[in-house]
Design a protein around this nucleic acid. Structure first.
Length: 200
DNA sequence: CTTTGGATCGTCT
DNA sequence: GACGATCCAAAGG
């Protein structure tokens, strides 16, 4: 497993996002391969948490690349982002789905509602449950060897032609094709119909 | 397969 | 005081 260079992440999230596909996300004994992401940008993206400037919640997005931005939503769920760009510029890539690779038994214990393996990490809050990512991990450096959650490269290249589609779960700035996924991967979240074409 | 409504509370207006 | 970068079970095709 190679390390991911911070310089590779210190670029616009729309460029970094598709390159994160097929990278490994490791959390202690549990690991998965990234198969679906969404890019969010600060000032120019009305759907971004950072659109209206820094707050107590989104502070990590304004920090250096390679750190984990964890937020709490809907009164019960956590979602995780990888911060991109340089310090002071708030951009991030939301992790939407993983292919379970390691520690699947533990994932199943953490997510009793998952009936099939593909239900373990096929959503932003689901993967946080399976990997035990919660509030306390907000701000963790994914590139530090000492971190419990890490981003690694096992040598698998990103897909040559990633699927680009509309972002899910937002009510503004729809229409941008800033959701990227691995073609035909069964762990990608949401209905298949949202991947084909650009309906609405 | 798709659609619908309820759960539940931190965050920002 | 309103609303989520969501999930799940249930119900309908």
């Amino acid at each position: 497993m190679k390390a991911v260079r911070r310089s590779a992440l210190a670029r616009p999230s729309t460029e970094v996002a598709p390159e994160l596909l097929n990278k490994m996300l490791v959390s202690g004994p549990v690991a998965g391969r990234i198969v679906e992401v969404e890019a969010y940008r600060g000032s120019e993206d009305a759907a971004s948490h950072a659109y209206r400037g820094p707050t107590a919640r989104n502070g990590v997005m304004f920090g250096p690349a390679g750190h984990l931005y964890v937020y709490f939503t809907y009164g019960m769920h956590f979602c995780a982002n990888i911060v991109t760009m340089t310090e002071g510029v708030a951009e991030a890539v939301l992790l939407r789905a993983l292919a379970p690779v390691q520690g699947i038994d533990l994932m199943r214990v953490r997510r009793p509602a998952a009936h099939r393996d593909r239900d373990l990490c096929n959503g932003p809050a689901k993967l946080c449950q399976s990997l035990a990512i919660h509030r306390d991990l907000n701000g963790v450096d994914l590139l530090a060897r000492s971190s419990t959650v890490r981003l690694l490269d096992d040598g698998t290249d990103p897909p040559t032609s990633p699927v680009a589609s509309r972002r899910i779960g937002i009510n503004v700035a729809t229409g941008l094709l800033w959701r990227f996924s691995v073609p035909d991967d069964p762990n990608v979240s949401g209905p298949r119909s949202l991947l084909t074409g650009t309906p609405r």
